[in-house]
Design a binder for these strands. Sequence first.
DNA 1: ATTAGCACTCTTGTTATCTAAGTGCCAATA
DNA 2: TATTGGCACTTAGATAACAAGAGTGCTAAT
Lengths: 345, 345
Amino acid sequence: MRQIGLEILKDRKSKILSAVIYHYIKTGKPVGSNALIEEYNISLSSAAVRNLMADLEKEGFLSHPHTSAGRIPTDKGYRAYVDTLVKLQNFAIEEEAKLKKEYERKHNETEAILSETSRILSCLSQYTGFVVAPKTQYDVIKNIELVQISNEELLVVLLTQSGIVKHKRVKIFLTQVQINKLRNFLNDKLRGISVAQANKRILLEIKNFRQNEAVILDAAEKIGDVFYNIQDDVYVDGTSNVVTVENFNDFEPVKSLIRFNEDKEKFIKIINKDFSSTGINVKIGSENTLAELKDLSVVTNVYKCDKCAVGVLGIIGPKRMEYEKMMSLVNKVSEMLNNFFKNKK
Amino acid sequence: MRQIGLEILKDRKSKILSAVIYHYIKTGKPVGSNALIEEYNISLSSAAVRNLMADLEKEGFLSHPHTSAGRIPTDKGYRAYVDTLVKLQNFAIEEEAKLKKEYERKHNETEAILSETSRILSCLSQYTGFVVAPKTQYDVIKNIELVQISNEELLVVLLTQSGIVKHKRVKIFLTQVQINKLRNFLNDKLRGISVAQANKRILLEIKNFRQNEAVILDAAEKIGDVFYNIQDDVYVDGTSNVVTVENFNDFEPVKSLIRFNEDKEKFIKIINKDFSSTGINVKIGSENTLAELKDLSVVTNVYKCDKCAVGVLGIIGPKRMEYEKMMSLVNKVSEMLNNFFKNKK
DNA sequence: ATTAGCACTCTTGTTATCTAAGTGCCAATA
DNA sequence: TATTGGCACTTAGATAACAAGAGTGCTAAT
């Protein structure tokens, strides 16, 4: 982890850096020395400020679009800003109340809550909001239901602790009596354990239960495979918010963002890989492993369900975002989602 | 319905119109009189062509970006082109084979097929492809499964003829014995009828079955409500394809297209309203009721499942699209989806 | 009816010029 | 020695002038 603290940035310098970034985020235009001393009470001459900015540029925190332009932050600059200069804001009381109400309104369907949460994130941030569903692999099995839907296909319906319902067809044919036996067997043996463990457990139990009908055990084995191939969902909202001339002036970053959004599988993989550490997580521009995100910043947090199954939520926006606000927002919303799942138990 | 046939366009004129639109679609630049006589074998002078183009402009088929520019088609021009001048092309044999293979590969999960179909549409068109799932209201009930998931919530799982699985939580608590009775009751009475009729049928049957336990009948009534509020799904792919400088040079149409895609409910409503007539359907620019689509063209066709439950599929692209190709594509893909559902029965 | 020819219009690209913003550096200063 | 005022220098961006090119509309001739 990079450690760029106030320690190594002399006090005055860090004040300049902070002011430059703050101002750039507000205006989107390169910040000159005069603009700085006018708008922030800096008791220095413009020349002194220029010297300091030149230093900050040498150290890699700021850069120059061209010789005669003001300074703009580099990714390293944003990073220092986020690491040391940002304080989480308190939420406006009205907004928090509004949020709470939203969650109380429809509290039954987990999927609806997740989708609503991504909408809330996008609305309040004015950027792209997303919620990756609790990782099914770490989720706990609550119930398994079986329905014969044709003479060659059985529908397996899985309900997890976090309230998510998944279903999959499997090539199996059984009589009603056999289905009942299998259902009891599966629920008996798998209820309460994680989805990831399910397959192993089935194989284990099959060994112990040789007295059961072979057909049923074969079917159980087949169903075991289902648990490996469960695709998690992701809810994305507000992509159009990011599409503005203000944020970008050519189509490429926009295109790649949309493409990223459309490829759910990739989305989930990347998000889970890069953003699964606990606590608020910020990746700025090139810090993102994915080329599609190199002109964007991502702010995330994990949320927990039953202390083990976890999901990730967050926002994606331009690098020039109000980090304080966004981090506070993501923090608050993940808290609320935690609460939702806590009450669910 | 507009009727702009060859009847009212004198033969030579319609040839000019056709050539102008064809050329504009290819190049994207206003078409001048010289370009026309050079590239298409028109045995007229440029002046004569100019006169004809002036006529076509007066009649509203062409327009002028500015005095000294060539002509571009109006929406009315495109309409005439599509209505009278387009012939469906045959599909390249390799492409058709590729398509067929795709459908044979994964033929079990209906949802997967629909999602795959939207991907195929987007890939082959290079625009946005979409598939609206078969209208659940017109779909036929195949099976209803019930799972008590807590001491206040019952999960209702609905499987339809077209292979789509829907689930919803309902505030009901029953014993296992009661659940079994209710399940039998529901499947007995509802299997084979359409989702739209389900609620009415339940109410009817409740009257006839007063001997049953009141708790169960109350639950059945509650479940009846579920059938009213089923949200259909829509699968969209390739939105990023439409986002190019070639198609647009400002962000607004792109933004509104993305926003439209994100609001599934609105999407489905509009598509169902405007595109549910059978046969290939084309709406050009301002012919779309939705402002978001006024700079785009939409090509759709319906697909049938079991002769009654129907869905819509199609593509959304710039007005300047190759209509022949797109209409042929949509036609072919809807045919294949029809086949998929026919084999399913 | 069709065409050749020409004046006219408008876009596009190029070049030159000017202005404003902002830097970098240096000599003066407290 | 740290800070400051001053000044030369650089660059983007705006504006205007100009030429070239494309294409039209109209008219007179065929």
